[in-house]
Simulated assay, not measured.
Amino acid sequence: MLKKTTIISIILIVLISFVLISYQSKGLLLFDKIHLYSLFYPIDYLQNFFNEILKTKDENRDLKEKLYEMHLQISSTNELIEENKRLKELLNLKERKKEILTIAKIIKRGANKFLKTVWIDKGKKDGVKVNMPVITINGLVGKVIFASEDFSEILLITDPNFSASVRVERNRIEGVLSGAGTNLCLLKYIPLEEEIMVGDRLITSGTDGIFPEGLSVGVVRKVDRKRGVFQNIEVVPLQSELKIEEVAILKSLP
């Protein structure tokens, strides 16, 4: 036999259940919906919040990719503009100087560690020959030391094996320019009594039978008269060997 209190509890539970069912059946579900919404609203909010964050990250990534693409396009365009400018200047130089044979592009640095050279994309089929002078719009670069059908090797003026007859533009004193094996050149065979000053500009003298007269070469950087028979003179080339991209090949002297 069930206890009296147990029976009463069961009856109360049944009555409460009927009341709730009746409460819902009369269309009073709004309270429950609001109550449930209030329970789940923070979860929905957090889910929407994180969805927005992920969406923003994706948009930022897309924007960054577009910015990089624009940057590369702008860099490429600027490079083309600079190259176009240099080529126009070389072409203008060719129009002024009829002795220019052709214009060439540097394609690689020399592999021989004992020589300071560069290779160009022009060769015998373009008329290039050994000992032809090589210049840029800034000044003397070197001379051709080897030519195949399609390519040629240029000995730079900074190589110790290079030499050219030059003169000081200011007072016409003449000497020989050779490479120092670094990014500098040396002006040789200038007697101690001759006046050479820092800042003096050098040009080719045209007396060596290879380089025509008047090509810009470099600027005197240092003068030392303390020892030896001749002055020790350092020269900075007007054309940096690290910045050469296109060159002009001059015809050989007659």
Rank of each mutant, 00 (worst) to 15 (best):
R170Y: 00
E246D: 06
G123L: 07
L2V: 11
I16T: 12
L67K: 08
K26Y: 05
E95K: 14
L29N: 12
Y68Q: 06
I107P: 00
G175A: 09
K122E: 12
I190D: 02
I13L: 15
K243Q: 04
I173T: 14
P237I: 10
L63F: 15
G228E: 08
T207A: 05
A147I: 03
V118R: 03
Q73L: 13
T182K: 04
E69H: 12
Q73H: 09
N51F: 07
D159G: 02
M1H: 11
E149P: 03
Q231Y: 08
A180E: 14
Y37E: 08
G181M: 08
S148D: 14
I13W: 13
M197Y: 09
L184Y: 12
F31Y: 14
T6Q: 14
R61C: 10
F230C: 00
Y23R: 05
K243P: 00
K108W: 05
I21E: 04
W119N: 05
T182M: 07
L115A: 04
T117E: 07
I81Q: 01
D126Y: 07
K55N: 07
F162P: 02
V128M: 13
K55Q: 02
N60I: 08
G199P: 11
E52F: 13
S25A: 12
V219Q: 11
I196N: 09
P160A: 06
T5Q: 15
T158D: 03
F40Q: 09
L156Y: 03
V128I: 12
P254F: 10
F230R: 04
L238I: 06
G27K: 06
T136M: 00
K98R: 09
K125M: 12
T6P: 02
L90G: 00
I16W: 13
Y37N: 06
S205C: 02
I43G: 07
I100A: 01
I120Q: 13
Q47W: 06
V247P: 01
I154F: 05
K124M: 15
H35V: 03
S205P: 01
I135L: 00
E52H: 11
V247N: 00
K188V: 01
G110V: 03
S205Y: 05
I154A: 01
I11L: 15
R109W: 10
E82N: 01
R225H: 05
